[in-house]
Design a protein around this nucleic acid. Structure first.
Lengths: 237, 237
DNA sequence: TTTTTGACTTGACCTAAGTCAAGGTCAAGC
DNA sequence: GCTTGACCTTGACTTAGGTCAAGTCAAAAA
């Protein structure tokens, strides 16, 4: 079950909120208003934060854990659109679309803490602050650009490309020749995120290992030759 | 070659601009400012309005003709993301993304007339008008939602579904049992838009004809049984 | 400890859609 | 009236990736 409360948002959480782009430009009075209407949600693994088609009442900031945004096809098949990591906000775009119904469902991949920012309160602030709305425009524009790249990957590139691209985009800070990545979700979720079947993901990992490009042990992936992987991507259809 | 000018924007064009959502809420002074910095572009078929990676200097309103937004893969394959019809604006999202580089190229499908709205002028107005920025937020949000649906179609549905869905979404106003559609672009462009190969598109049209669901003559498609087509879509994976 | 469960892997096989190559069709230009 | 070229169609064949059905393995439950 989802436990909700807001009596005492801890310093850690208030700080996370202050750092968040969508709230940065608020003056302290407005920020307090957001703070007072915000609710903290504690999700267990597999809890649903909101459901596709549901009515939006808040936008969300993930504090800890992980959330998948997914959609269910009529035949029961599911497609993960995005895996949200701590520090990131989601559902902001829904605020401005007429009906205000979620286009996807949000489900916890692990025990997670989420701040729910009261939609109406925030919307009112946006509609009176140019700085805020410009920030949001930048955010949505960036997301849109990301979606174009996503369609590009899906239509112009194959499964191996998508996996390698995903791995490369998850290299932590340091830019060395070898890099370690820990998958932040079960492999079948990653597979769905990349629009490939778990079996194919497994085979692709194996193939990359055989070629000496990665070293895959459970959810720990070591990129043995970042240079060659980048080259692979630039050739691969 | 693209011919550009702005000395005398005709009444028809000024009216089209007034009707456009992105300019609607401007007061007459601001609208005039937009008008005076706007340029009219006359494109021949196959003219490139802007190129992927190019620097944005204007946002565009299509007056007449047709524009395809496409991307080129390194291997030369092309993917059409969108086919713009008269009355619609494009490239607005690029305004707000940091680098301001076009993520796609825009190429005329037919002789076309486009109004180029000076980006900096418009951006300045947006940054001082809440109503304008709220309109834009709604617009981008709507596009984003559309992109989610696009990824959904690409990953959860097959070629037949995508074609039928495309046809159904292009039915003109009247909601009758039979409807005629004229394809507004060469079939290979439609194919690319739907991410299928021309050969497959051809075969799918034939199959639908054989099943008595459509009647396809060149670029004129007659939907013989809209009800059955809708049903097909709801079953089709 | 043993059992159960869910996540992952592997092999054998299948299929939707792509590829290749050969025509057809039709409008524009000579 | 023929030629050219762009676009579309058709048939034969290929293939990336999906499907199905056993496994394997490790962590949680009993």
């Amino acid at each position: 079950m989802i436990k909700t409360g807001n009596s005492e948002l801890s310093d850690m959480i208030v700080n996370a909120m202050r750092r968040c782009i969508l709230l940065q430009s608020l003056d302290s009075e407005d920020f307090d208003q957001v703070l007072h209407t915000a609710k903290l949600c504690n999700l267990d693994e597999n809890d649903t934060l909101f459901e596709q088609g549901g009515e939006l009442s808040a936008i969300y900031l993930l504090i800890s854990g992980g959330i998948k945004l997914q959609r269910l096809a009529p035949n029961g098949e599911e497609k993960v659109f995005e895996i949200i990591r701590p520090g990131h906000t989601f559902a902001e775009a829904v605020l401005f679309s007429g009906g205000s119904r979620f286009p996807v469902s949000a489900i916890a991949l692990a025990p997670s803490v989420v701040v729910a920012i009261h939609a109406k309160t925030y919307l009112k602030l946006v509609s009176t602050s140019n700085e805020l709305s410009m920030n949001l425009l930048a955010k949505l524009s960036q997301r849109l650009h990301w979606m174009i790249n996503e369609v590009d990957r899906l239509t112009l590139h194959n499964a191996t490309f998508r996996l390698v691209d995903y791995l490369l985009s998850h290299i932590p800070l340091d830019n060395n020749d070898s890099a370690g990545i820990s998958l932040t979700a079960p492999k079948h979720v990653i597979a769905s995120r990349l629009s490939i079947k778990p079996e194919t993901l497994s085979r692709t990992f194996k193939e990359l290992s055989k070629r000496g490009l990665i070293n895959s042990t459970g959810s720990e992936i070591e990129l043995l030759d970042v240079e060659k992987l980048r080259e692979l991507i630039s050739l691969e259809s």
